[in-house]
Design a protein around this nucleic acid. Structure first.
Length: 213
DNA sequence: CCTATGATGATCT
DNA sequence: GATCATCATAGGT
């Protein structure tokens, strides 16, 4: 009974709520990535909410574009973007359809398939670093823009699925400012993590780029 | 442990 | 042309 419940994908209605309600409840959930070499399972320990057109930190702040259109679509799908010329990041769309949103999956603990992730994460010195940071998480799970728009509620055989997992007790959930997000009005305490978990990434304040010479 | 910096390209102005 | 929801590395403490 408990076993079968653990393998149940999160219902789409779980995501069809405001991001700030969904984000803390994603902690402890299991993300399954089905690869050609086998499944990888990760327990989410850190996420960050982006509230769409009203949020200066959000990719959707300036309205709908080709890149961010998935953020405006139905909840329970993946929004994947490419950044800094090298990295991918994975978000979950939630909220009512038509209202842009995203929750950045920032870190997690690899529970199944660690040997598959180590191939892509050569520089990780400890397994706790395999998915410690959003681009590391995407790299470990072999996520790129081919998965942009993927349905996360389609069952464990799909390329990407969110399961119910093992949520932490509420007194272990913390929140604080978002990492690396700058700009006027962008400072909201919308980063959520499991306190004391060794896979949570270190906080980094936003630092403006130096101008090119 | 820490901070500073270069890598690399899509996106938007 | 500037910005960007980042990471790995080098070198100092």
């Amino acid at each position: 009974m408990i076993e079968s419940s653990d393998r149940t994908p999160l219902a789409r209605s779980f995501f069809d709520r405001p991001v700030l309600d969904v984000a803390p409840e994603l902690l402890g959930r299991t993300l399954i990535r089905m690869t050609e070499d086998g499944p990888i399972e990760l327990r989410l320990t850190e996420v960050e909410a982006y509230a769409g057109e009203s949020d200066p930190g959000s990719h959707a702040y300036r309205g709908r574009t080709a890149r961010n259109e998935v953020m405006f679509g139905p909840p329970g799908h993946a929004y994947v973007y490419f950044t800094y010329g090298m990295w991918h990041c994975l978000n979950v769309v939630c909220g009512p359809e038509g209202k842009a949103s995203g929750i950045l999956l920032r870190a997690g603990e690899i529970q199944v398939g660690a040997e598959l992730t180590r191939r892509r994460r050569i520089s990780a010195r400890h397994d706790k670093e395999l998915a410690k940071g959003p681009a590391r998480l995407a790299t470990a799970l072999d996520v790129d823009r081919a998965l942009n728009g993927a349905d996360l509620c389609d069952g464990p055989a799909a390329p990407l699925t969110l399961l119910q997992g093992r949520p932490p007790s509420l007194d272990q959930v913390r929140n604080g400012p978002r990492t690396g997000v700058g700009g006027e009005g962008a400072y909201h305490p919308w980063r959520f993590w499991i306190e004391g978990d060794p896979t949570v990434s270190p906080y980094r304040a936003h630092t403006p780029r130096r101008r090119a010479t």
